[in-house]
Simulated scan of single mutants.
Amino acid sequence: MNASSIKRLLQVATLAISGLLALTPGAQAQPTKIRVSTIPIIDTAPLQVGIAKGFFAAEGLEVDTTPTAGGAMGLPALAAGQVQITFSNIISVVLGAKQGLGFEIIAAGSNTGDKTPDLAALIAKKGSTIKTGKDLEGKRVAVNTRNNIIWLYARAWVQATGGNPDAVTYLEVPFPQMVDAVKGDRVDAAFVVEPFLSAGVASDAVSIVAWPYNAVQKRIPVSQYAATKTFITQNPGVIDRWVRAYNKSVDWTNQNQGSEEWTKIISAYTRLAPEQIRSLSLPAYEKTVDPASIDMVVEQMRKHKMIEGPFDSKALLYRTAVK
């Protein structure tokens, strides 16, 4: 066999092997891994739904979650490139953007509604005489992290109900530990979110004092998913695929709340029993973010000296968050 014949055989063999590989599932392109900083609270239900239901996988994405105590803690990891997407509260995202860290919101997270109950409440030990912000002066309130949305709206509620927010001590306590902190008298009150709120109330050791979010502002854009401008610019297709999968998860979540499958997914990442989950107050899961609602939050931030000067809420929103 001469050299030209051998060359033709090699070409045919190469084409055949390529064809077999194309038909072999294991030879398909590997999924793109996306690291997401998140919090194990009810607000992140659509993210967990998308992972469990395979919506992200269907878009060729492998989502690896990194839990934190609060959205503010996930943003340094985002800025450093340790994660590509972070679930965070609007306060922390605005502050980071204002500081020039290049954050942009790519998808909505959770909103409060127009009425109570909503997704977070101020609780105190059963039998406590705390009723107003004035009653909290000189006392300790648990917040998950300082300079975030829980901290800000705790202060705003104290002020709105006759108290001096600067006369209150705000202690950082992770959400899962807040009820125990109240029961153990380590704090006098706690601004706690679901699913820990309902679990605490069900224990009959704490009671609800107020609904600070609703008392200060209706339909607050509490949380969102953010990425850096650099990552978005370099990976616009990945962002489109991630948001498409996430929005599909939002639709599924809104259509299946309370179902057995939904309850199983929520139980898996919150570690709550199904009967506890059925009593939860749920946030409004959205697919877009209204810049006017962010402006109202920024105004509260100005009142409490968290931000100065102009802020362009529209510039904070990547196109996938406003479609």
Rank of each mutant, 00 (worst) to 15 (best):
F87K: 08
V83M: 07
A121I: 00
K134S: 13
I266S: 00
Q159D: 03
K134Q: 12
D295F: 06
E299A: 15
R186A: 09
A321G: 09
E286S: 09
L316W: 07
G258V: 10
A69G: 08
A72L: 06
A108Y: 08
L10S: 14
K139M: 11
Y246Q: 13
D118M: 06
L316V: 12
L119G: 05
V216D: 02
K305Y: 10
F87N: 11
P25H: 07
T86I: 04
P165E: 06
G26V: 07
G309F: 14
D135S: 11
A79Y: 10
T38F: 10
M73D: 15
N111L: 06
I6A: 15
A79W: 08
A227L: 02
G54C: 01
A202E: 15
A45W: 01
S37D: 11
T233E: 13
S4N: 13
G163S: 01
L317V: 09
K183R: 09
D64T: 13
A13R: 12
K53Q: 15
K53F: 00
I106M: 02
K126L: 12
Q28P: 00
R271E: 10
P165T: 10
A79V: 13
R140A: 08
L20Y: 13
P165Q: 01
G71E: 02
P291I: 07
F87G: 10
E308M: 08
E275P: 00
M301K: 08
G113L: 02
V192E: 01
V298I: 15
T161H: 09
G102L: 11
S259R: 06
T320I: 05
K98A: 13
A120I: 01
K248T: 13
G60V: 09
Y246K: 07
F311L: 04
A268V: 00
P291V: 08
A226I: 03
P283E: 00
A3V: 14
V193W: 03
W252R: 04
D312R: 04
A80N: 14
W252L: 03
E137K: 03
V192I: 12
R241M: 11
S92N: 12
Y153L: 08
A227R: 01
N144K: 03
S267G: 10
V298W: 14
W252M: 09
V298G: 10
A245H: 12
